[in-house]
Design a protein around this nucleic acid. Structure first.
Lengths: 190, 190
DNA sequence: CGAAAATTTGACATGACTCAACTGGAGTGG
DNA sequence: CCACTCCAGTTGAGTCATGTCAAATTTTCG
């Protein structure tokens, strides 16, 4: 059950059998049902989650009580509120399984201990975060330069399979427009 | 001239005299005039920049030929196009000094060598990126939940001194609205 | 099969943009 | 140190992309 994570780590750094023995005890494995919440607004954010199988989203509730999806995560992605995780503070975000999902999580204090014991993991997480932050710069670029319709087409080209997997209203809010508008884009009646 | 960076690193990890000796040769120091470009659209992005003194912005040219500011960086921040840096690819972004600015930069291959020689720096950069990515999650939250006017007031409360330092049209595009609109917000004639 | 959730549709409303003209201040060169 | 230029900021009118609301339809799932 931890193999996908170990395999993913090995794409970035070398791990021997001994390292693996050291890592395993710090990890926790869970299965989530569709719509189950991993993290809830107002809670302390003290974990980081790795998606083994399935798919999750991060969202916030805006003042009008609507859910605004801010991030998706699929197989081989880590997800958490990194500011909350970093500062051990409560979070404004929710993380929810969109499908039946298997995750590996690590608690923030366990995380620190693990990094002290296996320092080469610092490199792994540095690389992961570098990619994640780069992707987020890229995303801001698209949010800033493309119209709602262009954002949808672009997203659709980039992740055609993903669009099938996820309800439209989540994609609409991820792209920062209303579900009704997405429906009109799809109908071609702009 | 490298002290501010070394000092910043010491906030996150311990450095002894020997480490410092190893680090220095990999760094490069530069002074930039106001409006000078550090990185230009279409170039290979192979450096990462640390602001010693002054202030820079990252921006893109949208189809209409307007400059869209996507990020600011002030003292003690690193800035680059991390996806370009990671993949050694050309960039869509520009990085420009807003004021007279002093920077320390490190080339991507020098960066890899340095990390191999002083592995504890992996931790420093992991922590930096964790904070940066967290801040970017936070920013997306604000872009998604607040109106243009609220975004301005929020930004103004968070960085009152910064708003003085930077031209309004850059702030407007950073907050994703037009300079004219910002002017109207400030006048209170919404 | 039935209830609840998601999507579609249309009418209408509006926040923010565009464009163009005007004002003011900062920097530059004579 | 003045005069000129030019860039940033302001203002107003008109427009448009996208939002809101509510009803109708389709899909999902217990």
């Amino acid at each position: 059950m931890y193999t996908p994570l170990l395999h993913h780590i090995k794409k970035f750094i070398q791990l021997d059998a001994d390292d693996i023995q050291q890592i395993i005890p710090y990890l926790e494995y869970n299965k989530l049902k569709k719509k189950e919440l991993l993290l809830q607004q107002g809670e302390l954010c003290n974990k980081q989650y790795f998606i083994v199988k399935g798919c999750c989203r991060m969202y916030i509730n805006n003042e009008k009580g609507q859910e605004q999806t801010t991030q998706f995560a699929i197989e081989n992605w880590w997800i958490t509120d990194y500011l909350g995780f970093h500062n051990h503070s409560t979070t404004d975000f929710n993380i929810q399984a969109i499908e039946e999902t298997e995750i590996v999580s690590i608690d923030s204090s366990a995380f620190e201990e693990l990094l002290a014991k296996v320092p080469k993991l610092e490199r792994y997480f540095r690389l992961i975060l570098q990619k994640a932050f780069g992707a987020s710069q890229f995303r801001i670029k698209f949010l800033f330069t493309l119209s709602a319709e262009e954002r949808y087409h672009h997203f659709n080209n980039l992740f055609p399979d993903f669009v099938q997997r996820v309800p439209q209203y989540m994609i609409a809010s991820y792209l920062d427009f209303s579900p009704e508008f997405l429906s009109k884009i799809r109908a071609g009646k702009l």
